[in-house]
């Protein structure tokens, strides 16, 4: 995944079955953000792998005051990359088991 300066990781073990998974997002490189980023902590949230859309969650984070509108694409892409990796690993585990 491209280094966007925003890190997204699993906030819990992925058993490969649950639809919603807890993710944790934080900024590793403030310089890569266009807007001023005031929150220095990690933001934990639940993501439904079937229903949720990364860019929508990113917009919710902007609306919740965590990021500036100009960074919604960067945040969305960071979430999308991590979700894609989770789905890829799940698919690989299933095919290995088959």
């Amino acid at each position: 995944a491209e280094d966007t300066g925003v890190r997204v990781e699993l906030a819990e073990e992925d058993d490969g079955k649950k639809a919603s998974i807890a993710l944790k997002l934080w900024v590793e490189d403030h310089k890569k953000l266009k807007g001023k980023y005031k929150e220095s902590g990690a933001i934990e949230f639940s993501f439904d792998l079937e229903k949720d859309v990364p860019e929508v969650v990113a917009q919710e984070m902007v609306e919740s005051g965590f990021f500036h509108e100009s960074d919604v694409k960067t945040v969305g892409k960071s979430i999308r990359d991590r979700v894609a990796l989770i789905k890829w690993r799940r698919a690989r585990t299933v095919s290995a088991a088959a």
Binding site: R7, W26, E28, G41, A42, E44, S46, E63, S64, F66
Partner: peptide, 27 residues
């Protein structure tokens, strides 16, 4: 410190907590 929480109007909860210790050293 108690983690802050923000609930978006769409219902998603965002919980803010310190960045994981081991990741701070990497910055």
């Amino acid at each position: 410190s108690p983690s802050a929480q923000v609930v978006h109007s769409a219902g998603r909860r965002f919980i803010v907590s310190p960045v994981p210790e081991d990741r701070l050293k990497e910055q």
